[in-house]
């Protein structure tokens, strides 16, 4: 039963990852964009150690979220443009399965971009971010982004102004996760304990669950003609 549910989810994610490895249509522009954001902020604020601790979490999550949006925009537009979304919808799996497969693909892709970004950020701002707390915050917050972003990507793919529509739909809903991620990262850099950071992680976790459940339901309607 579980294998029947998880098998197609992994198949969809595997297919998306393989396509991205072959084409690099998303990862290249997204990584370049994210690095540009970090470089521009680096020159704009001339960071001192005190200032870095204050602004770094915000800059980091600006780079992650905007880069994530660029990637999410392509998640369904490529399927839609090539007509392959119909092929997915003809498979004998529930719409939930398609949703979770696309979420998993987007999630792994966004984590890969973040893994590339962290050392760049560390070098430019002279700040070590390879801390378990930061990785935990990034892993949970990114799941929330992928959960919401996937359903809005499906909705936006049916509109003419999809590149504008996705951020307009995404940011107001994802805002609590962005705020919690920034606060959790800032707490880590300030040296707050697990108890303080854990509260932000819990908050992100609650939103992740809500996003996955509600978005999974909304996804059925997003695919309708």
């Amino acid at each position: 039963m579980i294998r029947n549910f998880l098998g197609p989810i992994w198949a969809i994610a595997w297919k998306d990852i393989l396509l991205e490895i072959r084409t690099k249509e998303i990862v290249t522009p997204v990584v370049v964009f994210a690095i540009l954001v970090v470089v521009i902020f680096n020159f704009a604020i001339e960071p001192t150690p005190q200032m870095v601790a204050a602004v770094a979490p915000g800059i980091l999550w600006v780079a992650f979220t905007f880069a994530g949006i660029l990637g999410l925009n392509r998640t369904f537009s490529l399927e839609k443009d090539k007509g392959s979304l119909d092929g997915l919808m003809l498979c004998p799996v529930s719409r939930d399965t398609i949703y979770f497969g696309k979420v998993l693909g987007s999630y792994l892709f966004m984590l890969a971009v973040e893994a590339i970004m962290l050392p760049v950020f560390a070098v430019l701002f002279n700040l070590s971010l390879f801390l378990p707390e930061v990785i935990l915050v990034a892993a949970t917050a990114t799941l929330g982004f992928a959960a919401v972003g996937t359903v809005f990507s499906a909705m936006a793919a049916n509109t003419r102004s999809r590149e504008i529509m996705l951020p307009v739909l995404f940011f107001p809903i994802a805002l609590p996760v962005v705020i919690a991620a920034v606060e959790g990262t800032a707490g880590t850099l300030r040296g707050d304990g697990w108890s303080e950071i854990g509260r932000w992680v819990q908050l992100i976790g609650v939103f992740d669950v809500i996003f996955l459940v509600v978005s999974g339901f909304a996804f059925h309607f997003a695919l309708e003609e």
């Binding site: 098998g7 396509l19 090539k82 498979c91």
Partner: peptide, 21 residues
């Protein structure tokens, strides 16, 4: 529409649908 992924091979496309079914 052919409902296939252009950057996957013939085998990979059919393998994908085989797994979905």
């Amino acid at each position: 529409n052919i409902l296939l992924y252009e950057e996957l091979t013939v085998y990979e496309n059919l393998k994908f649908y085989g797994r979905m079914f």
